[in-house]
Amino acid sequence: MTTPYSTTTTRPEPATASPARFLLLGDSHAGPVGRAAKAAGIAFSGGPVGAGRDFNAGFFDLRGTDVAFRKPEADTYYRRFLDELGISGLGELTVPLVCTFGFSAHFVATTENWQIYRVGGGFAPGFLASRLFDDLVRATVRDALAFYEHARGLGLRVLAVMPPQRVPGLSDPDVFMAAQESVRRAVTALGVEVVDLRDRVTDASGRQRPELCEPNDVIHGNLAFGRLILADLLARGL
């Protein structure tokens, strides 16, 4: 699915005199973060490098201390971002890495994928909190987790941004909520800082409040949502 953010980047103009404060890598959910930083005059490098479904499994290879994205377009964006920072690989990064890989929970929660685990139209009691469910989710996003593990192994400060609390019609809401928790726990265990704004952006139903949603769109957060994420990042010292 092509989105306004998967086809454009949100990095500042190369001529900026301010040093970048972080490298932003991710799917379309990185778009509002980059837009907010640009609007606020916060220097950074990076932005979306593809769609969320591209960054769960089989999307990169290790190249020493660096990575190479398997999709040429993604790798082209990534190399451009590194050039802006004056480095040639991830291992040379001296600023924090902000990332959204693995957190497009609506892909993981595609209803059809979970039909085999339903009993009488619903899940068995405790299934969504079970070790089996957790293992299935982690297997689905295994290379996103491997990417975070590699970055942490390089000594990088890594911050992962949880997704907007929006569930499109093809996804199961209960699986969405449980799956993002599984990913959150997995990346936290790797030493990744998780930007989790759920208690600030949702209503009583647990869904994203309308004023923080991109209009005419069933998945993304808007600029206001990006500003909340940016504020959290800045409060963490970025």
Rank of each mutant, 00 (worst) to 15 (best):
L190M: 13
T65E: 12
F225T: 14
G237F: 01
Y78S: 04
E13R: 15
P12Y: 04
M1K: 04
V183L: 10
R200G: 07
T111V: 00
R53W: 14
T10E: 04
S6N: 04
P48T: 10
A17L: 08
A37P: 06
D174G: 09
G120T: 00
S45M: 06
G102C: 13
G121M: 02
L62H: 12
L234G: 09
L197H: 15
T76D: 14
Q180I: 13
F101L: 15
S18H: 08
Q165R: 12
F69L: 15
N222G: 12
A129L: 14
K38T: 12
R200L: 15
S18R: 11
A51M: 04
A57Q: 14
N222L: 05
T3N: 06
R80V: 02
A144N: 13
Y77E: 05
P164E: 04
E193H: 11
H150C: 08
E92K: 02
R185I: 09
V167K: 00
T10P: 03
T94V: 01
F59D: 10
T111Q: 00
M177N: 15
D66T: 09
P19D: 07
G91T: 07
D134C: 12
Q165C: 09
V167F: 03
R236V: 06
P164S: 14
N113W: 03
A144M: 10
N113V: 00
N56Q: 11
P32R: 06
S18M: 10
R166F: 06
S182L: 03
A146G: 13
R53Q: 12
Y5L: 07
G58L: 07
F123T: 03
I42S: 02
S104C: 05
L154I: 04
D143F: 10
